[in-house]
């Protein structure tokens, strides 16, 4: 159990809702993940093709902690506008501040992210910024008052896993607010790795929704995250250079 702002979370898996093939798969994957937090985006309605599926429209968001993102924003002003739209609609328990600074890598713009967080905190939002593996920025944002820090594992949708475990660990050790590893997770191995480093939670989307079997992958991720957390709490053994027998070295005179 941990807290982000005033919200208590039992599950350490936060789930994005993009790219699910249909409503049925999405519903089952959400269930299998056992998540309590759902992320989604704000977009223009399609005025011309009303038959385009929108699986999210079928989800009862009142059963979840709502965690809209500001994806699409390239400036602090745009991010704040998206947050205000979600808040107006009554589904903005927490806001994921995502301000992209580079279209190719989809890496976040630290300056605009910082500014957006500042404005949103002043307005009373529960603010969770998506950032690169930058410990100094993480500390500055913590000083500003954000409620969680969300460093990436690797660029959005790449499934490359944890590219910079050292910097991720620095962030985890140097900030006191929850650290949610967001973006780039490919498999439960990656999620488990992040949790073993001491992350408080993982925000996933593509790794589940684009898996061959998203429902099974949701279950696998859930278990990977739980295993990683347990391992972190249990305290793993140090890595050694030389082998050390696990069976007694005495009493082998009969051989």
């Amino acid at each position: 159990m941990f807290k982000i702002g005033n919200f208590t979370l039992n599950s350490r898996l936060l789930l994005g809702t993009g790219k699910f093939e249909n409503e049925k798969v999405q519903t089952q994957a959400i269930e299998a993940s056992e998540t309590e937090v759902l992320t989604f985006a704000v977009r223009r309605m399609n005025l011309y093709d009303k038959d385009l599926p929108n699986p999210l429209a079928k989800v009862d968001l009142s059963k979840f902690i709502t965690f809209p993102n500001t994806a699409g924003a390239k400036t602090a002003k745009e991010a704040v506008r998206i947050a205000e739209i979600a808040n107006h609609a009554g589904v903005c328990d927490m806001i994921k501040v995502e301000v992209i600074g580079d279209d190719e890598t989809l890496l976040p713009d630290p300056l605009e992210t910082y500014e957006a967080c500042k404005v949103l905190l002043e307005k009373g939002y529960t603010v969770c910024p998506y950032i690169s593996n930058d410990v100094v920025l993480a500390k500055r944002l913590e000083e500003l008052g954000v409620h969680a820090i969300m460093p990436l594992a690797s660029p959005i949708g790449t499934g490359r896993g944890i590219n910079n475990p050292l910097n991720l660990r620095y962030i985890i050790e140097r900030v006191n607010v929850p650290v949610i590893v967001d973006a780039g997770i490919g498999s439960p191995k990656d999620a488990c790795h992040a949790m073993e480093l001491g992350a408080d939670g993982i925000l996933l989307n593509t790794a589940i929704s684009s898996a061959t079997d998203p429902v099974k992958m949701a279950e696998a991720m859930n278990k990977g995250i739980s295993a990683g957390r347990l391992s972190y709490e249990a305290g793993r053994i140090p890595v050694k250079y030389t082998a050390q027998a696990s069976s007694p070295t005495e009493g082998i005179g009969f051989l």
């Binding site: 993009g18 985006a41 704000v42 223009r44 309605m45 589904v91």
Partner: peptide
Amino acid sequence: LELLEFVGGG
């Protein structure tokens, strides 16, 4: 007028 909605996203 902007007519908006929530869609899947992560």
